[in-house]
């Protein structure tokens, strides 16, 4: 018997409340994707993604949509790592993120890691669309396998557009069944944690940070536009987080 996967879409809307804070007129969790508003920090509203079930499992299709209005400030974190697991149903799981930020709005998207467990198959697609004048900090971290375990199959595409122009379009494919060489000296070289951090700030129009290597396994590079990308690899999630945190702090 095969079971159909779970379909779930969580939605967040953040708006300037006119009193120096951010309101959340839409905060809709769905099935396994629960959302909690946590204590705000100044003008910024904070939302925590809470996994109410395990997954995504094979065949599941999860989506999270967040839209940040003019002048609103939203921080999204997650209570725990997302764990891609093999399912009983056939086929891969999908996880889609659709994030939009209006002029003068800010999104800080800082969830915990995605862990690709042996036997799982997950395709992640993240699309971030910013209006000119919007601000973004977007972090994604992938951990290939639990401790000492082979990873599952993971494909993750990240697209960032500013004013309709694509600033970044990147896809990582790894795990059994991915095209050859994914674990070799050009791609991951045996590293089991990889991460990207995208920072978009209007003030980068005036002055863009210089490209630089952060040791042998991480680098910060300006994109073509007011944005930088930090790319990092590490042996484990803890070390990866440290590198990304330091890189973010170095941007001031």
């Amino acid at each position: 018997m095969t079971t159909a996967g779970v379909r779930a879409t969580a939605r967040i809307s953040a708006r300037d409340d006119g009193r120096g804070g951010t309101a959340l007129p839409v905060l809709e969790g769905d099935g396994p994707l629960a959302l909690r508003r946590t204590r705000a920090s100044g003008a910024e509203a904070r939302v925590m993604l809470v996994g109410a079930m395990s997954g995504p499992l094979g065949g599941d299709h999860f989506a999270v949509e967040a839209d940040v209005g003019e002048g609103a400030r939203l921080h999204v974190g997650s209570a725990a790592a997302t764990i891609a697991l093999p399912g009983q149903g056939k086929g891969e799981a999908r996880y889609d993120l659709r994030l939009t930020i209006a002029a003068g709005g800010e999104l800080r998207w800082l969830p915990e890691q995605l862990i690709s467990v042996k036997g799982s198959e997950l395709e992640v697609s993240s699309l971030v669309e910013l209006a000119p004048g919007a601000r973004l900090v977007f972090r994604e971290e992938q951990v290939l396998g639990r401790a000492g375990e082979e990873p599952g199959r993971l494909t993750s595409r990240l697209t960032v557009r500013l004013g309709g122009r694509t600033l970044l379009d990147q896809e990582v494919a790894c795990g059994p069944g991915a095209p050859g060489g994914w674990d070799g000296p050009a791609v991951l070289a045996g590293c089991r944690a990889l991460g990207q951090l995208v920072v978009v700030r209007p003030e980068f129009e005036e002055r863009l940070p210089e490209p630089r290597a952060l040791g042998e396994y991480a680098a910060i590079s300006p994109l073509v536009g007011p944005a930088v990308l930090v790319t990092a690899l590490a042996g484990d999630a803890l070390r990866l987080r440290r590198v990304l945190d330091e890189a973010l702090a170095s941007l001031g």
């Binding site: 896809e171 791609v187 991951l188 490209p211 042998e216 680098a219 910060i220």
Partner: peptide, 22 residues
């Protein structure tokens, strides 16, 4: 349109290009 083009990335090629440039 161009979104249909492949976007495969090799993190170590990207990182080591910046190391090499230094």
């Amino acid at each position: 349109g161009v979104d249909a083009l492949p976007a495969g990335s090799a993190p170590l090629l990207e990182i080591s290009a910046e190391v090499h440039a230094g």
